[in-house]
């Protein structure tokens, strides 16, 4: 018996891709300590727009850390366009489910990825369909996100 399922616990206890990439191609931070969760994601992108590495640092609860770990794992090896298709729902599914009050942790991870990609796009003068209408400074609310 625990708060979370085995997959979430495994990613929380042994998180993948913890850290910060030096000279990243994109860096995004989302959330705030006041809300109890803040994620930073750094990415490395190669010439063919493929994410070759992603690392995270997260202030937050068990599911925030597990979501960050899973999210970074999911985007490594994907192209930017593919990574932008990752939804918070997919993060939840890969984690085998999150308790309803913790769904926002997956939203945070999804947003943090988009923030990092947005930063990459800005720095490299690129535009992506998946970033249309995305505002990295938008308030953290769950409207418009798929609930688990």
């Amino acid at each position: 018996m625990g708060l979370y399922n085995d997959t979430v616990m495994e990613h929380f206890m042994n998180p993948r891709n913890v850290g910060e990439i030096e000279n990243p191609d994109g860096k995004g931070t989302y959330g705030s300590p006041v809300c109890g969760d803040m994620m930073q994601i750094t990415i490395k992108v190669d010439d063919s727009d493929k994410i070759t590495d992603a690392k995270f640092k997260t202030f937050g609860c068990g599911s925030a850390i597990a979501s960050s770990s899973m999210a970074t794992e999911m985007i490594i090896g994907k192209t930017i366009d593919e990574a932008l298709e990752v939804t918070n729902k997919q993060i939840i599914d890969e984690l085998g489910g999150l308790p309803p009050v913790k769904v926002h942790c997956s939203v945070l991870a999804d947003h943090a990825i988009k923030c990092a990609i947005y930063d990459y796009a800005q720095k490299h003068g690129k535009t992506y369909k998946g970033l249309e209408g995305f505002d990295p400074n938008a308030d953290d609310d769950e409207e418009g996100h798929e609930e688990a």
Binding site: G2, L3, M9, F12, M13, G36, D37, F59, G60, C61, G62, A64, I65
Partner: peptide, 14 residues
């Protein structure tokens, strides 16, 4: 400081 209570609780529980 700099960390979150539930994470501490979970790791202590482990």
């Amino acid at each position: 400081e700099y960390i979150e209570g539930e994470s501490i609780l979970l790791l202590l529980d482990s």
